[in-house]
Amino acid sequence: MTTPLPLLSVSSLMMQFGGILALNDVSFGVAPNSITALIGPNGAGKTTVFNCITGFYRATNGVITLYGREKDTNIGQIIGEKLSVVDFIQPKILLRKLYYKMFGGSHLAARSGVARTFQNIRLFKDMTSLENLLVAQHTQVNRNLLSGLFKTPSFNRAEQLALENAYHWLSVCGLADDANRLAGELPYGHQRRLEIARAMCTKPTLICLDEPAAGLNPNETEALSVLIHTLKNDYHVTVLLIEHDMGLVMSISDHVVVLDHGEVIAMGSPDSVKNDPAVISAYLGIEEEAANS
């Protein structure tokens, strides 16, 4: 909210599962080309926010808007809204809602420029690393059936480009040697990085990383923080991450949003959040003592 025009704005987000209120009136913004961290104790609703932003969950209430390169996207709209009675007297809205109900879905969120990784790694385990990255470029390659069957020059060119792009991201993430290995056979840390490479292959404007440092050793975490900086500085993507490793969060974030029990309890620069009494009492107190001792 420091910049007038954020890349992503989340306003009054509410999410209800049955009788449980998972998110209540969550609002924050993500500035373009920044690193924003979403933190909070377990069960605070961080992953639910992610799932709403990436279009996997339909929020009960609230608006998520992505101010993209070409046009702005309302995430709630493209995944198919519920029909209401008043829609039937507004044919234009009704048609739009029906269209998105039939053809919409979380894939449109990805196409509008939001990429993500998952808390429990979701790679295509029985495919090679390269194939994982090729699948990620599905929307960019030549998908014409006939040109593929006859191997036309334009098809070959597109495949070659996709392959080069894939190799490029493998080397950026330090996985060049794993290109033709099965994703499921890679060491854990490599799998985490492969997931980031795969997300980057979709050419996103915003990448959402769900606990990217979970299960990594200190060296790997260090490499990860370098990688995230590279993504921001060299590739100009905006990073939104959920992370429990406070060392990492405090060192790389430009902006921190703290969630607790489905509500935003604080946000701001890492330093201001660190000293916020509400945050300390809810969550960071232990962290502080550990840092001081």
Partner: peptide, 8 residues
């Protein structure tokens, strides 16, 4: 029945 919530 109860609606199924997809686990992501």
């Amino acid at each position: 029945g109860k609606p199924e919530i997809e686990k992501v």
